[in-house]
Design a protein around this nucleic acid. Sequence first.
DNA 1: TTCTGGACAGTCTGAAACGGACGATTTCAA
DNA 2: TTGAAATCGTCCGTTTCAGACTGTCCAGAA
Lengths: 198, 198
Amino acid sequence: MSSVRLSTTSYVVLGMIALRGPSTPYDLKRAIGRSVGYFWSFPHAQLYSEPKRLEHAGLLELEEEQHGRRRKLYTITGEGETALRNWLSEPVNAHFELRDVAEIKLFFNELATPADVARLASGQIEQHERRIAEYESMQKRYSDIDDVASRMVTLELGLGMERAALDFWRDVAGRVERGEFPAPPAREAARRRARKAT
Amino acid sequence: MSSVRLSTTSYVVLGMIALRGPSTPYDLKRAIGRSVGYFWSFPHAQLYSEPKRLEHAGLLELEEEQHGRRRKLYTITGEGETALRNWLSEPVNAHFELRDVAEIKLFFNELATPADVARLASGQIEQHERRIAEYESMQKRYSDIDDVASRMVTLELGLGMERAALDFWRDVAGRVERGEFPAPPAREAARRRARKAT
DNA sequence: TTCTGGACAGTCTGAAACGGACGATTTCAA
DNA sequence: TTGAAATCGTCCGTTTCAGACTGTCCAGAA
């Protein structure tokens, strides 16, 4: 009812309930964990407080409340569906963000040792290989279930990203092995700066 | 001095000061905006408060404070460099996150119209093409400046990611054009569900 | 000169996001 | 039948976040 600011979190909650039908926060947590959570993680506490907010805003409805384990079942309202559809039809202006601490560490490679960079790269290669295997098995598992097929597209993007990252880190690992990286001159300069500053 | 929890933000601040030498928060803001900020954005207010925290922790030193425009020049301490180097040599356990609202909207494609999806895809194609052009021109501009060459590696990862995303969205656009997507049956089911809920 | 607009630099605030500890409930196997 | 593990939910203190706001400096117009 009252005008609240809706964040991406809000729309994910709204969208999940629209897709799945009436859901409890815990349902959301699990559904998100198996899908969009791979790309964008939402802290579980948020998935309990956000529906409450959305209910106050009239976009969700508290359908029923069980006893004992006091679960709350939320349903999307007509208003909620309208808000969701409007959002879906709006253009996306923000560019994606790749929050990757490995990449940040690599950015500071001048301040690290070649061994550090080598370990970083091999760790990343392992991680991305594992993730690719995981995505591929998900793809195989769900490829013939028609009902979720259209949700699986995003998996393809995930796979593309993972493979690009894997290629990149393999290249980095190769360069480090061949002694091409981190570039010795820059490293020396950094070390000189470091000494001076101590 | 006192033990504070160091986040990625902390290390980015520390690392930037280590690379650039004594810096003001505003310097950091600009330097980050031109580099790691492309992947992982930090709100500028953070870049004023974080150095203060790090100074209290003994990892930075307030070197001098100009008059008039009361700028604060921060320098990294020996302790700060140690903390930074330790972090750089630690393994990365977290997987990267791709925070992309376009991808989230695509995940909910069943709830949108084909026209929505088509617009989404063409918008993304444009955005990624622009970003690729930007990255390529940065690469050209800096390729012969030895001093920043090793920082430019991360640009390659960025380019790889952008190209993967571009390929993906072109594919989506093609499928939508050919009427293969969003899958009509799923869309009908969603519509039915939607009608029932209203 | 003074005025003024725009780039530059920094502060403040309230709301979300975060993560992890904790508590309660249910299930199931020993 | 009991108690360990899995399930489900709340709470709380930080950190992050966006963006409004304030002040400073400089250049060129008046």
